[in-house]
């Protein structure tokens, strides 16, 4: 840690606080997460900040999702957008931190590129949020979501296959 550059300190702070903020945002719509879960996520986030490539980040994120699954009860309000922003910010910060050893200074252009990317991909969250809000009064929601997810998954698989086709033999 003593070798960290100022940039590394900033991105690792974002990595650390992202999952905690996403977890805490759940409290804005009702009952917040319990203290035991907060402590566990905090510990995992700390490990995630120290080792951005480790599975600790995945586990912390999944625990956040589990907490929202438990407390969300199908309601979608604006606090979900805050949680989504915190999660993607933490993810992007971890990508930046993992580009090299912890004493490598962050490149300005790379950081700017990822800030733009983070902001761009975050737009998917309000889009889905608006869609969910629009469909909230419709019957047979589950079928709609399954169809949407299947379509999205097919698109992703198609993109992966297309990407692999470009590789040399």
């Amino acid at each position: 840690m003593r070798h960290w550059t100022p940039g590394q300190w900033v991105v690792r702070l974002v990595v650390l606080t992202g999952p905690l903020l996403a977890l805490s945002a759940e409290g804005l719509q009702g009952d917040g997460p319990g203290w035991p879960l907060l402590v566990i996520v905090a510990a995992l986030s700390a490990a995630f900040a120290l080792y951005p490539e480790s599975p600790a980040g995945s586990v912390a994120f999944v625990l956040v999702l589990a907490s929202w699954w438990e407390g969300g009860a199908g309601l979608v309000d604006a606090s979900a957008l805050l949680a989504a922003a915190a999660l993607i910010a933490s993810h992007v910060a971890a990508v930046l931190a993992a580009y090299g050893p912890d004493d490598v200074p962050l490149d300005r252009e790379v950081t700017l590129l990822w800030l733009v990317r983070g902001a761009a991909v975050f737009l998917a969250a309000p889009a889905v949020w608006l869609l969910a809000d629009a469909l909230s009064d419709q019957p047979e929601q589950a079928g709609v979501w399954v169809a949407g997810v299947v379509a999205a998954t097919t698109a992703v698989l198609f993109a992966i296959v297309a990407g692999r086709d470009r590789e040399p033999a």
Binding site: W68, A84, V121, A124, A127, A132, W145, G163
Partner: peptide, 25 residues
């Protein structure tokens, strides 16, 4: 989200889905 009927989870992970898709492509 799909299995449990929790659209809020889809909102949370939507940016990650896009990120993963672009990275894989």
């Amino acid at each position: 989200s799909v299995v449990g009927g929790r659209p809020v989870l889809l909102v949370l992970v939507a940016p990650m889905v896009v990120t993963a898709a672009f990275a894989l492509v």
